[in-house]
Write a protein that binds this DNA or RNA. Structure first.
Lengths: 102, 102
DNA sequence: GCAAACGTGTTTTCATTGCAAACTAGTTTG
DNA sequence: CAAACTAGTTTGCAATGAAAACACGTTTGC
């Protein structure tokens, strides 16, 4: 009965970190965003944003392209197909949990 | 615009742990449950269930009553008003996140 | 009648992780 | 040319989740 709730324990831990979920949600809407933009939108410190992005990249959820805007470094992030799919599944799990606990 | 997503970073970290969310969800539906029942429903090991329950109790989210069933120890858990409210807020946050990322 | 298995939890150990602070490296400004 | 700024990365550390070990009493099998 209440046993379907248990499905939540199977949830994607990488996305279940709020900071990362927000990053991915932004990228899901925008297709591409740079480091500074992400920092402003998320409110994260640069240090934390940096490590979260690295983790998402290592998981294959985002791609990171390093280039320059004028003379300054520019880090561009985009969701991969893998990341998009993982996020979709993650949202579904959340949604199911919310519905099952009504 | 995408800035409301950021609200997720404010989420209740105690409930954002899937194991604990499931425990609380069960208690929200049942009003009261014993340790063994919770262990079976959640699939957690006894050790982990024990520590999660202790954390929920310390936060004032659940009450724990220790007694006996026959000669065996019996640990009864119930959601407090505080816990119920926290869980309600938590569900709302999840729900909002899901909706905002559609 | 006593050793082994069982019931019901708790405590300990350990690797992971999220966060803040410090660091890196180059650029612009006064 | 020193100070401040841009754009990140790395380091240090305290918190934490999971598994294993421990505790303590009860029942069963021989």
């Amino acid at each position: 009965m209440t046993n379907e709730l248990r499905a939540l324990t199977d949830i994607d831990r990488l996305l279940h970190e709020p900071s990362r979920a927000v990053i991915v949600a932004i990228l899901a809407a925008l297709e591409s965003a740079d480091f500074v933009f992400l920092q402003r939108e998320t409110g994260l410190t640069r240090g934390n944003l940096s490590t979260h992005l690295t983790k998402l990249e290592q998981a294959g959820y985002i791609s990171i392209e390093k280039t320059f805007r004028g003379k300054y470094p520019l880090t561009l992030c985009a969701l991969t197909a893998t990341g998009r799919e993982a996020f979709s599944k993650y949202r579904k799990k959340l949604s199911q949990f919310v519905e099952q606990t009504e």
